[in-house]
């Protein structure tokens, strides 16, 4: 269909982006103003925002790939924790072999972590699709399983040869503010930004995306045109698990470098709020994750500022309270995939 060309470009951009675009512009102006006032703090906060948002974006991508196909995944937390743990152990033990370089070791460890997440995704699919278990209970099983297993096998005093290091992207990294924030990051952070674009394209512009969305909205419509609903759900939930796995290895291989008990600290659940706030779209999730990342970054910043009058526990509550506010304010207004949470039964 031909679009009428009489509408001016700016109007069409406004229609597409609307208030969101205005907010983005305001935020950008705010950043520039704050940068002029204090270069160092602004750069630190924004870099920290990107870092904090990375696992949330990945977790939200995991959530939305599943939910777009109709599977609610409340086990993201457990998938992340387990992947963080197994990825870390892989880093330790592959490193001890002494066969591979540090980089190769980390690469293999990351792959193993991703596979761990994917495997738990497969387990979730098995529980929800084949056993037709309640999906929320299925996710809870994964969470409790991950806490139990990582707790039992956790040992202190393991050493690794290192973690993933920032890669400066040549001259781009020298741009003030933008350089250090966007173009001087470790690999998983870059990969995450690429994945947001890739998942968006896949979801809305490919056959796989069309079929996934159909399965999540109206599975019997997909079934009657010969699409295997169960297979789609299995495949997507497993792939999604890989995203949660990547979020997990981000924690142990890129951000922290070691494993601690319960180190995911609710990020898997916050990621679900991010997904909802982002209206089940990758770019939406990315924007929402930046907001949450910013809240967490400010929290660290407060602690550095010294003249602290608010008890740190109250600052610690911020991301969780923000999640509640977001859920309370936005759930009613956005529309989740219609068939999520419901096991598909033929007729």
């Amino acid at each position: 269909m031909e679009t009428t060309t009489s509408i001016p470009i700016w109007k069409r951009i406004w229609d597409r982006l609307g208030i969101l675009g205005a907010i983005i512009i305001l935020v950008l102006i705010g950043i520039v103003v704050s940068f002029i006032q204090n270069q160092q703090v602004t750069t630190a906060v924004l870099s920290s925002t990107i870092r904090q948002s990375t696992p949330l974006v990945l977790g939200a991508l995991c959530g939305l790939i599943g939910e777009r196909t109709g599977i609610i995944n409340i086990g993201i937390e457990g998938q992340m924790l387990m992947a963080a743990f197994i990825g870390y152990l892989a880093n330790v033990y592959i490193g001890q072999l002494g066969v591979f370089s540090v980089g190769m070791t980390l690469f293999l460890a990351a792959l193993i972590g991703i596979a761990t997440g994917a495997l738990l995704g497969l387990l979730l699919a098995f529980m929800s699709v084949t056993l037709k278990m309640d999906q929320i209970i299925g996710g809870t099983v994964i969470n409790i399983l991950a806490i139990g297993i990582t707790g039992y096998f956790y040992q202190v005093g393991l050493t690794t040869q290192g973690k993933l290091q920032p890669i400066a992207l040549g001259r781009l990294a020298d741009i003030p503010l933008v350089g250090p924030v966007l173009f001087d990051n470790p690999p998983i952070t870059y990969i995450t930004l690429i994945l947001v674009v890739v998942v968006h394209y896949m979801l809305f512009y490919t056959r796989w995306g069309l079929r996934s969305r159909a399965v999540g909205e109206y599975p019997s419509a997909a079934d009657t045109v010969g699409i295997n609903v169960y297979l789609m759900r299995y495949v997507n939930t497993t792939i999604a698990g890989g995203f949660a796995g990547l979020a997990g290895v981000f924690l142990t291989l890129e951000a922290v470098g070691s494993f601690e008990r319960l180190m995911t600290n609710g990020r898997g659940f916050v990621a679900l709020a991010v997904m909802i706030f982002g209206k089940w779209t990758p770019f939406g999730a990315w924007g929402a994750a930046l907001l949450f990342g910013f809240a967490t970054a400010m929290q660290t910043q407060f602690q550095f500022m010294g003249n602290l009058t608010i008890p740190h526990q109250f600052i610690g509550m911020l991301p969780y309270l923000l999640t509640i506010v977001v859920l309370a304010g936005f759930v009613g207004r956005s529309r989740p995939p219609a068939a999520e949470g419901i096991p598909y039964e033929k007729e």
Partner: peptide
């Protein structure tokens, strides 16, 4: 929250767990 805003209790109660941990920590410390 569930009744008036539709916020699912699964996530809000998990978030309130973290809030409770922080809150009781603060009081006890």
């Amino acid at each position: 929250l569930k009744t008036y805003t539709g916020a699912n209790e699964v996530i809000t109660t998990i978030m309130l767990n973290y809030v409770a941990i922080n809150l009781t920590d603060y009081l006890a410390d």
